[in-house]
Nucleic acid binder design. Structure first.
Lengths: 185, 185
DNA sequence: CCCCCGTATGCAAAATATTGCATACCTGCC
DNA sequence: GGCAGGTATGCAATATTTTGCATACGGGGG
């Protein structure tokens, strides 16, 4: 039941439509909590029924109408209480790690390629994180308290990303050496 | 559909029962792919029906009978092919990160406690990883290729864990300073 | 003898998430 | 005019995961 809280969290400062929320999830909170647009639309509806969000239609020029959602007082209270409840970590699930358990002379080339792709993707993501950090969190101590929490989450993303890059390099090195050994035969 | 492949991967070297598998998942592969015993039992059944696993009953002394599962040739082939298919990363979902987006003067104390608990838990896990590394992977280059793949996965666990500890320290520092500021009023 | 604990397997229901559509508006391009 | 593409919302069917049981064996302690 925590997608609901992630969504409400995204609405703390600004009202958003499902579409905007889905994109915000891609860029910010979604780095720590991913959700497809279908999930988001369904959850928004449920939250509105519960009275934690209000909805209003907004006509737009040149675009279809949208439905803006905002936190109600009840929603804010529910969110505030939730912070004290037990956290759960849903460990990430990664096929690649399972594949590594199956490393063989046959598939080593493929796994090197896959790791290389991961490296590239993580690099892109780190550029994004760094850009966000520079633009919005250049001087974190000066920020209001809540934003410092967001900064810490971003910081975790950055550290984790850098560590992942380091691992990719280490793995690629090891695999390259092993493949050389194989080729030498 | 990758839980099935994680299970088969766990059976590459040894036949295991559902119960043993559930515990092995806790300690090894489960660090990268978690599954409850219910999931495992169901999946084992499906895989046996598909012909990828064989099952045989084993009577034990002092314990209930168990059902041992082993990879069939078809299973091994399916696993071998799967390695070439697209990987997917299911990003981890962590309530704590969402909670940090809700940081406030009221809940800062609670969040410090939660992060402290995470730090402790990760420390314990790192001890386990390090123990495994020392016992089984003291000299990785000397290992057969497949085991080197397993080593790389372990290595990722270790690096990620160390990085997480570093983040916890950084976060605890920042939050301690902020709380001092609040208390000073 | 009874209860708890560890071993061992499982069902059923509910909650969540994914996949594959479907609709509709408007802009810009060819 | 047709078509692609971005905006915007949604349904329905599956698949996956979680939750909450339920059963049963045998050992050890009180």
């Amino acid at each position: 039941m925590a997608l609901s809280h992630a969504i409400m969290t995204a609405l703390i400062e600004d009202d958003m439509s499902g579409y905007e929320l889905a994109k915000a999830f891609d860029a910010s909170l979604g780095l720590f909590w991913n959700a497809s647009h279908q999930q988001i639309y369904q959850e928004l509806r449920k939250l509105a029924e519960k009275g934690w969000l209000n909805r209003r239609k907004v006509a737009q020029r040149g675009k279809p109408d949208k439905i803006l959602y905002g936190l109600t007082l009840a929603g804010r209270e529910a969110l505030g209480e939730w912070v004290y409840r037990d956290s759960r970590v849903q460990e990430s699930k990664d096929d690649l790690l399972v594949k590594l358990y199956n490393l063989s002379a046959e598939n080593i080339g493929h796994l090197r390629v896959e790791i290389g792709e991961r490296r590239e993707a993580m690099m892109q993501r780190l550029y994004l994180y760094e850009r966000i950090r520079r633009v919005h969190y250049a001087n974190p101590q000066a920020l209001p308290l809540r934003r410092q929490g967001v900064f810490l989450a971003l910081r975790l993303g950055i550290l984790a990303g850098e560590q992942y890059l380091a691992w990719c390099d280490e793995a690629l090195d090891l695999l390259a050496r092993e493949q050389e050994k194989l080729d030498a035969r």
